[in-house]
């Protein structure tokens, strides 16, 4: 059932305005839009390799037939592209507003995504499993990381993959978060950019192993302020992305 079908017209209009701002590349989520192509490119290429779909990347829907769960979907900046690439996408967020915004935007854009306002543990309880689970820019918001990874780990089917991206807890990221480098601060909702919740790669791999996953490649995503552009690097001191599989 559509996540917006129960909303009133006034409410829908309000969410439409918020959707416009979420999706405005020059708007308040500008840094996230700048960053998005890099992480999507990584996700696409690694998953194509993992599922043997590399030769289909030039076609219309290279990932047709695979089920993907996007945890912490926000306005749908990852979920929509994943659906266009052919995944059968379920996307969840703990913020009810986010889910409504995302669902409205997908409907306007003619993209099919199953948006739900729920927590990963709710879905895990239902016994759902997916070929791919994405946890991009979410673990830094999670209260109990061990419990969170247990839930998402359970939902990766054997042979499936999980990709996580987040901010490392380093001196550099502390300075950035404290002194408000725009790109760190602005994509995190006000008051949630708490440096203490940033996660070190070693902590993430530990939690993954406990959740029955096998962590693999880790890459840094580095921002070049003067060129205002992002690049995949080996520097893990700020943003990084990690690929894991389930045996």
């Amino acid at each position: 059932m559509s996540a917006i079908s129960t909303a009133s017209p006034e409410e829908t209009a309000k969410f439409a305005a918020m959707a416009d701002s979420w999706w405005d590349p020059e708007g308040k989520f500008k840094p996230l839009h700048k960053f998005n192509p890099l992480r999507i490119g990584y996700v696409r290429d690694r998953l194509a390799e993992h599922f043997g779909r590399t030769d289909r990347l030039e076609g219309e829907t290279p990932f047709e037939g695979l089920r993907l769960l996007d945890v912490g979907c926000g306005g749908g900046l990852i979920a929509e592209p994943m659906a266009r690439l052919g995944f059968d996408v379920t996307a969840i967020d703990a913020g009810e507003k986010n889910v409504k915004i995302a669902a409205l935007h997908a409907e306007q854009s003619g993209v099919k995504v199953d948006y739900r306002h729920c927590l990963p543990e709710d879905l895990a309880e239902e016994g759902k499993t997916y070929d791919v689970v994405l946890i991009l820019e979410v673990v830094e918001h999670v209260a109990d990381l061990a419990h969170f990874l247990q839930s998402v780990g359970r939902m990766v089917r054997p042979g499936g993959a999980l990709i996580a991206a987040t901010l490392n807890r380093t001196a550099k990221s502390l300075v950035m978060a404290k002194f408000g480098a725009e790109y760190v601060v602005r994509w995190l909702p006000r008051g949630t950019h708490d440096w203490r919740k940033f996660v070190k790669p070693s902590e993430l791999t530990d939690h993954m192993r406990h959740a029955g996953l096998t962590p693999g490649e880790v890459k840094g995503m580095t921002y070049h302020p003067f060129a205002d552009s992002w690049e995949m690097t080996g520097d893990l001191s700020m943003n990084y992305i990690m690929f894991a599989t389930k045996p």
């Binding site: 990347l57 592209p81 659906a83 266009r84």
Partner: peptide, 14 residues
């Protein structure tokens, strides 16, 4: 083509 390959909206503002 670049945005299409990423599944992004080819008529979007970006």
């Amino acid at each position: 083509v670049d945005s299409h390959r990423l599944g992004l909206d080819v008529g979007g503002a970006q």
